[in-house]
Amino acid sequence: MAIIVDQDTKLVVQGLTGSEGSFHGLRNKRYGTRVVAGVTPGKGGQDVEGVPVFDTVVDAVEETGANTTMVFVPARFAADAIYEAVDAGIATVICIAEGLPAHEMLRVYTYIRPRGVTMLGPNCPGALSPGKANVGIIPAEIFTEGSIGLVSRSGTLTYQIGHELTQMGLGNSTIVGIGGDPVVGSSFIDILERFEADPQTEYVVMVGEIGGDEEEKAAAFIEAKMSKPVVAYIAGFEAPPGKTMGHAGAIISGSSGTAQGKKEALEAKGIRVGTSPTEAAQLAAEVARG
């Protein structure tokens, strides 16, 4: 099993002919992901190392049966690319592109939710199910297959924690980057729900950061709905209010969205929170080893 991406993933890369798109698309392909198509308007009929390129997503879906898209187009074209994919029948959208205007994402989110589309990002590293499929920019080499589900708003911080888990001999079912923007396609709860239902996943590590209240909502969800143990890590205790810390969504507004508030909300529901990425990985190891 695993979640979101696996052997059944048939990936179309929107922006495959760009430098980033081809680098990561082909990297995903070498990993074993079924990369079936690329889309670049005006370049239909070409191919990128054997992957056929189409002018539109509809063409790509009709010809190849693609069911998942990776959006690698510049931010100003990303919303359009997502609508195009969803209207072509794509069920899973993974948007690596960074810098989408928040209002555009608000409309995208409102459009895709009732259509049952799964979306990660924008501004996310994608999803990796070790041994099955990798869609995005997560360095697969540092992860191994296992039973820990990992969900995070941040890329490198996830790699850091995953790396520490690997060094302790622990592997992952799926690593999911939900993205660092104020509005993203999937919340922590959306992913936790899937990990709870996934037979391969036995434990979950949730990596949050300042801004918004998704970690607080997740805390209540974990207590009410999850049987699998969850440990957490929160970044940004030292972040000053009112400043955007790299991620557009990482900002403390007034007194809301602080790391301390999130930590307390999680601990109040009995969820252990590591003080450093290393300690979070150690907590996960403790749980996994009983």
């Binding site: 490198t156 911080l157 660092g180 950061e209 972040a239 810390m245 790299g246 990482a250």
Partner: peptide, 12 residues
Amino acid sequence: GNGAGLVMSTLD
């Protein structure tokens, strides 16, 4: 550092 999350974590 590299990556917003990792840098925030570094401050902590």
